[in-house]
Design a protein around this nucleic acid. Structure first.
Length: 183
DNA sequence: TGCACGATGAAC
DNA sequence: TTCATCGTGCAC
């Protein structure tokens, strides 16, 4: 299992988003290692992106987005669902990639399509906010073998309020994968 | 101190 | 289409 280094996250957010497809998300809790293959993501491009939480500026919640790359930004939506992002680009840039769907690989129970269900199945909640993704209990790794797939680009989900940014093709998923939330 | 509103999901 | 449910951000 080859863990991706911090330098992977310290790059253009769209490049990171596309390169996350096919990688394995690993979370070890209570002695159980849960693994899912990332099949759908969305890029949030910083303070100019009106769909991004960071467009509202540096606040208590968005603090992690403004921090260094390679950490998890986990927040609660609608008072009940956790969503997980990986923070990208240099310290202070405030961009991230939302993980929207996984394909179960190991010890994953329940549905994994959709950001809230993904977190529930992987036992991810806000306690993991700001958690470093280069550690040994919560990280992203290259899958064992090389895989070929094509990538579909679509507008992001649930950001219709974001004006022109709502139409940008910043949602990426693996073509034909049955675990994608909204093909 | 109050209030409007979600990067959702499940039920109806 | 409706609603559950509450942290966050910003207005008073």
């Amino acid at each position: 299992m080859r863990k991706v280094p911090r330098a992977f996250y310290d790059r253009d957010t769209i490049a990171v988003a596309r390169d996350l497809l096919g990688k394995h998300l690993v979370h070890v809790s209570n002695g159980v290692e849960r693994v899912g293959r990332i099949v759908e993501v969305e890029a949030y491009l910083g303070t100019n992106d009106l769909a991004s939480h960071s467009s509202r500026g540096l606040t208590g919640r968005t603090r992690v987005m403004f921090g260094p790359p390679g950490r998890a930004y986990v927040y609660l939506v609608y008072g009940m669902h956790s969503c997980m992002n990986v923070v990208t680009e240099r310290d202070g840039h405030a961009s991230a990639v939302l993980l929207r769907a996984l394909e179960p690989v190991r010890n994953v129970d329940g549905p994994t399509r959709g950001p809230g269900r993904l977190c529930k199945a992987m036992h991810i909640d806000r306690r993991l906010n700001d958690h470093d993704l280069t550690g040994d209990d919560f990280f992203i790794a290259d899958p064992p073998g090389a895989e070929r797939f094509s990538i579909v680009k679509r507008p992001r989900v649930g950001v219709g309020y974001a004006g022109p940014w709502a139409r940008r093709l910043l949602r990426f998923y693996i073509r034909g994968n049955p675990f994608v939330s909204k093909p």
